[in-house]
Design a protein around this nucleic acid. Structure first.
Length: 232
DNA sequence: CACCAGGTAGATC
DNA sequence: GATCTACATGGT
């Protein structure tokens, strides 16, 4: 991997953790590969890593992801950043930071609608207000256990079981979190169960089979399922 | 014009 | 608790 425009100090203080470089993926892949299905999925997504992303940004981003498609999710986040973020100029081009909690809490319904948020606009505004007022803190939730963090995240409007698991996995260093979206549900039923079952049952099976690295297994399975369009 | 997309909130039993 | 439905928006 090559990073441009990055000092050794900046690499150590930020990017090393962001790219999860201290985790031994070789060892985890070996462990998961004792399962024949995971062995194939791991082969498919051999270079994958779980990024350690910003908790606040991840919280809002995955509220937007619910019942939505990836193209639109990206567009909405881009437009929110342009409208409510801070401009950064670099090499003659403009970029925008992800908006601060206060900015989204103060956003008007019309502005959020203009970004294409749809009915999620109200969720974003409410959750942003909770953070801006200090009722909840994404950075403090990160310090909690998986169970406590999950429970706390559910108090945010727009955050359900699956979105909470995504936030915990992608920004709060909880590799045991196993988000079950439509693809993971399909691939688990297809390979391990054989018939449609409730999501909670899939989470139970995943915890038993994959243990404390269930989240990484989820990512290999997700990628594999999508690429192969399994169950569709 | 239906159906779908990295589900959730609110009502109901 | 478990189950059902409406939900903005843009693409196919």
């Amino acid at each position: 991997m090559i990073l441009e425009n990055c000092s050794p100090e900046r690499f150590e203080s930020f990017w090393r953790h962001y790219f999860d470089l201290d985790r031994d993926y070789g060892e985890i892949k070996r462990q998961l590969s004792s399962d024949p299905v995971l062995k194939e999925a791991v082969k498919y997504g051999w270079g994958m890593r779980i990024l350690n992303q910003d908790p606040w940004e991840t919280l809002i981003s995955f509220i937007i992801s619910a019942n939505n498609n990836i193209t639109r999710i990206k567009g909405i986040i881009e437009r929110l950043s342009q409208k409510f973020g801070r401009e950064i100029c670099w090499e003659g081009k403009s970029y925008y930071t992800f908006p601060a909690p206060e900015s989204l809490a103060c956003a008007s319904e019309e502005d959020l609608k203009a970004c294409g948020c749809g009915y999620r606009g109200a969720y974003i505004k409410k959750t942003a207000a909770m953070v801006a007022e200090g009722l909840i803190s994404p950075y403090k939730i990160r310090e909690l256990s998986y169970e406590e963090g999950h429970k706390t995240l559910l108090s945010c409007m727009g955050v359900g079981d699956k979105v909470a698991d995504c936030i915990l996995l992608f920004s709060m260093e909880k590799p045991e979190a196993f988000p079950v979206d439509v693809w993971v549900k399909r691939v688990m039923e297809y390979f391990y169960i054989g018939s449609p079952v409730p999501i909670r049952q899939i989470k139970t099976i995943a915890a038993e089979k994959f243990g404390k690295y269930a989240g990484l297994a989820q990512q290999y399975l997700f990628y594999y399922a999508r690429e192969k369009k399994i169950g569709k």
